[in-house]
Simulated assay, not measured.
Amino acid sequence: MSAPLLITVAPTGAETSKADCPQLPTTLDELVATAISCQAAGAAMIHVHIRDAEHRPTLSLPALSETVAALRAETDLVVQLSTGGSVHDPLEDRLAVLDAAPDSCSLTMGTVNFGDDVFLNPWPFICDLYQLSQERQVVPEFELFDLGQVASLSRLLDRHGLPFGGRVHVDLVMGVPGGMPGTADALVAAVAALPPAVTSWSATGIGRSTLAVALAALSKGGHLRVGMEDVLTLARGVPVESNAQLVSRAAALAELAQRPLMTPAQARELLGVRAG
């Protein structure tokens, strides 16, 4: 049997406004309902950004803690909080995300142009966040936007050792204007450059690169991240109706690739996440 597939859903993000996309889950109730439907469709992990009462991106610690608790109460999903926030969030607020005690956190391995903005991740911040994740027993997912960040991952592991849990899981974020393109060639190059310590990897195709990246990742034995943080259309002129729709499409691709879907319990084992 082929290796099980981990599907991560990224339902909200920090870029799209509720006014432009009313179906985007921005309230806690909407996020929990989305998580329940996405687990039923085949997701095993959820990558979480939250919004305030005006639907604006926030890193409010009480709200993050409430979100983690609600997702754990209503689903079995591995709960991963974004430490990227929005491109405008201060570094100290991004470090404080770990105070909400998620199962996992994102950890971006370098600064990258993000459209017209700059997603700032200086080396000292990367090291601080990584060491804090080790101390707090939070499993990082290393977000890699280009090949230079693949090299930075090797540097980080050489300097500070393995993450909590002993597993090294990365996500190739592809197709961001300013990062590596969302192509099969770029994916193959990035996977070939991953350090030997990497135990699993997934890929995310932004916008119109979603399907190309998903198909390439499946053919290379990787895992998938999908969700409305990354794409808002199913095809040209066809808007996404829900995150569960994107998870279901990924699950259908997995069936074609003969990759059984990973359960949340299997995902915890794969990632080295601490027991609940």
Rank of each mutant, 00 (worst) to 15 (best):
E135L: 15
S2E: 13
G148W: 03
T83D: 05
R136T: 03
Q23R: 10
N113Y: 11
L132G: 12
A244V: 10
H49L: 13
E229F: 10
P11Q: 03
L59M: 13
V79C: 06
S152P: 02
A70C: 06
T34D: 04
G179S: 01
M109R: 01
Q39S: 05
Q245I: 05
V247E: 02
S37E: 15
G272R: 09
F145P: 01
A214N: 15
R155Q: 15
M1H: 14
P239C: 11
L270Q: 08
A197H: 12
S86N: 09
Q131V: 12
L234W: 07
I50W: 00
A254C: 08
D171W: 09
L246D: 06
H223P: 05
Q137S: 13
S2K: 13
D171M: 15
L77N: 08
R225A: 09
R159G: 02
D146E: 10
L153I: 04
L28S: 00
T26F: 06
E229Y: 08
L120Y: 14
R208P: 09
R259N: 03
L28G: 00
C38E: 03
L81S: 03
L246V: 06
A44L: 03
W123F: 12
A250F: 02
D29I: 01
A63I: 00
H55T: 11
A257D: 05
E241Q: 15
A257P: 02
L270K: 06
D99Q: 15
L61F: 09
P11K: 04
P102C: 06
G178T: 09
P102M: 01
C21Y: 14
D20G: 15
A252Y: 13
L81Q: 06
K18P: 08
T58R: 00
E92M: 10
V198M: 01
S86K: 00
L261V: 04
V97P: 02
V138M: 04
P22K: 01
L91W: 11
D89K: 00
G276F: 12
W123H: 14
E255F: 14
V198E: 01
L211V: 13
G13K: 07
R159A: 15
V168L: 07
L261M: 06
